[in-house]
Simulated scan of single mutants.
Amino acid sequence: MYSNRFGRLVSGLYGRKRSAVCGVVQSAAGRSGFSWTAVSKRRSPRLQRSVSCLEMRHHAVPCQISTRSSSQTTVDPDEVRRFQLLAGKWWDEQGEFAALHAMNDLRVPFIRDNLLNVHRARHPGKPLAGLRILDVGCGGGLLTEPLGRLGANVLGIDPVEDSICTAQLHASFDPDLRDSVSYRACTLEELSAEGEGEQEQGAGHFDAVVASEVVEHLADLETFAFCCGHVLKPGGSLFITTINKTNLSYALGIVVAEQLLRIVPSGTHDWEKFISPVELERLLESNGFSVQSVQGMLYNPVSGAWSWTNSTAINYALHAVKLRDDPQQDQAEESSPHPEDSTAATHS
Rank of each mutant, 00 (worst) to 15 (best):
A28N: 10
D78T: 09
E55A: 10
T73W: 06
R46N: 14
V80R: 04
T37P: 12
V39D: 09
S50G: 11
R42M: 09
V108M: 02
S71L: 00
M56K: 03
C63T: 02
L106S: 09
T37I: 07
S40R: 14
A38S: 07
E96P: 13
R57T: 11
D92G: 01
R107M: 13
S35M: 02
D76W: 05
C53R: 07
V39C: 03
V39G: 00
W36L: 05
R112P: 06
V39Q: 05
L86K: 02
S32R: 09
L47N: 10
E79P: 00
P45T: 12
L100Q: 12
E96R: 08
S52V: 03
R46L: 14
E93I: 00
R42Y: 13
S66V: 03
R112K: 15
R49N: 12
P77A: 03
S35T: 01
L54A: 04
W91N: 10
V39L: 12
L54V: 05
G95H: 02
R81Q: 15
K41Y: 13
C63D: 04
A29Y: 09
G95T: 00
P45S: 11
P45E: 13
D113G: 07
K89N: 13
A29W: 03
E93Y: 03
A99E: 07
R42T: 06
V51C: 07
I111L: 01
T73I: 11
P77W: 05
V61W: 11
R46M: 06
G95M: 00
A29L: 03
D78A: 12
S32M: 05
P109S: 06
A99P: 06
S52N: 08
W90E: 09
D76L: 15
K89L: 11
R112E: 10
G30V: 00
R82H: 15
C53M: 12
A29V: 00
G88P: 01
D113M: 06
S35V: 08
S70Q: 15
S44F: 00
A60H: 11
S32W: 04
T37V: 13
D76Y: 12
G88M: 09
T74V: 07
D105S: 01
F97Q: 00
Q94I: 04
V39A: 10
L47H: 15
V108Y: 02
F110G: 03
K89V: 02
H58V: 02
S44P: 04
I111H: 00
T74A: 13
D113V: 04
W90M: 07
T67E: 14
R42L: 15
A38G: 13
A87R: 04
S27T: 03
G30S: 01
A28G: 12
N104W: 03
S32Q: 10
